[in-house]
Design a protein around this nucleic acid. Sequence first.
DNA 1: AATACATATGAACAGATGAACATATATTGA
DNA 2: TCAATATATGTTCATCTGTTCATATGTATT
Lengths: 115, 115
Amino acid sequence: MEQKEEHGNIDAETMQTLENKQPPEEILYDLAELFKVFGDSTRIRILYALFENELCVGDIATLLHMSQSSVSHQLRILKDAKLVKFRREGKSIFYALDDEHVYHILEMGMEHVEE
Amino acid sequence: MEQKEEHGNIDAETMQTLENKQPPEEILYDLAELFKVFGDSTRIRILYALFENELCVGDIATLLHMSQSSVSHQLRILKDAKLVKFRREGKSIFYALDDEHVYHILEMGMEHVEE
DNA sequence: AATACATATGAACAGATGAACATATATTGA
DNA sequence: TCAATATATGTTCATCTGTTCATATGTATT
């Protein structure tokens, strides 16, 4: 006999519980930003190139048949996301993976894709 | 004394080895597509809402303060990526997670973000 | 069949994104 | 200090993306 405010099928209490379980907005935003970085095949190729070796920018460009500029731009995005680190050696800058999560995230994605 | 074609620092043989280790173009594309789906906070919120319960479209909209249309559009993307499944019950359509990888991928991302 | 309810779909618009090009910065060596 | 090399940055442009609004489809009830 009571008035229901819900469109659907769960009660207000459950609704509230679910709402409380949502991660904070800021975390959600960061999480989305992280996955966006993985959401480009060029960047994934760079990450795979760095899987076992560190590489300098020019070699990545040669390896992946990309322009130096494009590689540099993408490396910046990967660096901002803290997925790669770098060190300078003379004129070259060597990039390497900066986080073991990179492996696991790519692996998980690969498992899903390969089904 | 030989002419080097490489910009950088690794030899042609190593270059070739690295090139061979790159996943095939099609896989890379699918992988990027998958991560793109995770690369939006709205969709992540929907996935978290479905973490422990199935929910109908209207309830998701209410829970997340979104329009029905927007939720429906995003559910379509999640469905196409095979991350959610659905069943009809009368007028309502209930969505649920369709893959254990969803949990793991989100967890991995969360770990990286929370550092 | 007519209505109400739940969801899906299509079009349009604003904002984001990646590649390309030109240019700037930084390091080394002459 | 000047030239050469390696990398980074700024801008522009075409394309993609998420939301909104309007409308269509599907289901149950009377």
